[in-house]
């Protein structure tokens, strides 16, 4: 197990290097001058002190942009590793500082929504599978079908209108405290609850039809033990990859709800930056996304190894 984990963790580094190469290439090939990307285009910006052409050339030299691309990459990577991501156009503050202010809010939002996802999708999937073909199952499936068609941005606005304006039961002033985050987190989770619950349902129905369930029952194990410790234990395996993708993608999903509910998180920040062509922020966002995705994948892989011995032992016959 330890060996598997170490090997899996080591694989993350080449992945990160490859991703950094791609991001570097994207930035280099993106429309616009790299100096623009670092310092804003000549003559742009209100709060930006416009840099003269000589200064630009000097920066060009300092940045090593006159060097061949591999060396440029090395210089760029060195700065990235030292978390030197430049300053934003808008505020001229270091990107990392601004990010650090916003990341906790988005992280809170992401984990909150992940929790909401788990406590709704898993029971729904289990209830649906156990009552296959009965009213409860049809009900769950119908609701799931409806909600999977619901655009989260629209749902968010509707809830905001109904709960915040019509009934005035929630605080819609926007903020980063827990009370501000529950509804946004729920809206964020709701988009994927149907997917997860139906996948769990299908997986659980298939497991409940397996012979080992009959055998466990024949040994007199109680319904609860058979369902949760045998069937669900196996049925959750296929949905873990999707859960990982969701956590990895939370950075994207949060953009919409942060925008709708005016939450000062990473999503709203990057959205404003894209619309204001604030490239250093976009670059930071991509790097952050890559690290989060890689981490989420690592967590998924390690959980698979913990929960599924066939993966841990590489499926090879030992006996």
């Amino acid at each position: 197990m330890l060996k598997y984990a170490l090997r899996r963790i080591l694989v993350v580094f080449p992945t990160l290097v490859a991703a950094s190469l791609i991001i570097f290439a994207l930035i280099r090939f993106a429309p616009g001058d790299p100096v623009d990307i670092m310092y804003g285009p000549a003559g742009m910006g209100h709060s930006t002190a416009t840099i003269s052409q000589e200064a630009r050339d000097k920066v060009r030299g300092q940045l090593g942009l006159l060097e061949p691309p591999p060396i440029q990459y090395a210089i760029w990577l060195g700065r990235v590793v030292r978390l030197d991501l430049g300053t934003t156009f808008k505020t001229r503050r270091p990107v990392v500082d601004e990010l650090a202010e916003r990341l906790p809010t988005t992280a809170k939002l992401a984990f909150l929504s992940f929790g909401i996802l788990l406590v709704t999708a898993i029971p729904l999937g289990v209830v649906s599978a156990v009552n296959q073909g009965k009213a409860a199952d049809h009900g769950v499936r119908f609701v799931a079908l409806v909600f999977s068609a619901m655009p989260s941005f629209w749902l968010g606005l509707l809830l905001l209108y109904l709960l915040g304006v019509q009934w005035d039961v929630i605080d819609i002033s926007g903020g980063s405290e827990l009370k501000h985050l529950i509804l946004p987190a729920a809206v964020m989770a709701l988009g994927i609850v149907p997917t997860i619950s139906r996948l769990l349902r299908a997986s659980l129905i298939s497991e409940l039809g397996q012979l080992y369930i009959v055998f466990a029952r024949a040994q007199g194990l109680s319904d609860g033990v058979v369902l949760w410790r045998h069937a669900v234990r196996v049925a959750v395996l296929p949905i873990m990859a999707l859960l990982g993708l969701y956590l990895g993608g939370a950075l994207g999903g949060s953009v919409i709800v942060e925008s709708i509910f005016s939450i000062p998180g990473v999503g709203k920040w990057v959205l404003d930056s894209i619309l204001g062509r604030d490239f250093p922020v976009v670059q930071a966002y991509m790097l952050l996304a890559v690290v989060i995705i890689a981490t989420a994948n690592l967590v998924v892989d390690l959980s698979y190894a913990v929960l599924d011995p066939r993966i841990r032992f590489g499926g090879r016959q030992v006996a």
Binding site: V214, F215, A218, Q219, R233, V234
Partner: peptide, 23 residues
């Protein structure tokens, strides 16, 4: 109280009779 106590059963596919991910 019947299954497991008064009577018990083994099945045709021995490997499928056991949970694949539990020791």
């Amino acid at each position: 109280g019947v299954a497991g106590k008064i009577m018990t059963m083994v099945l045709q596919e021995p490997r499928d009779s056991l949970n694949p991910v539990l020791s």
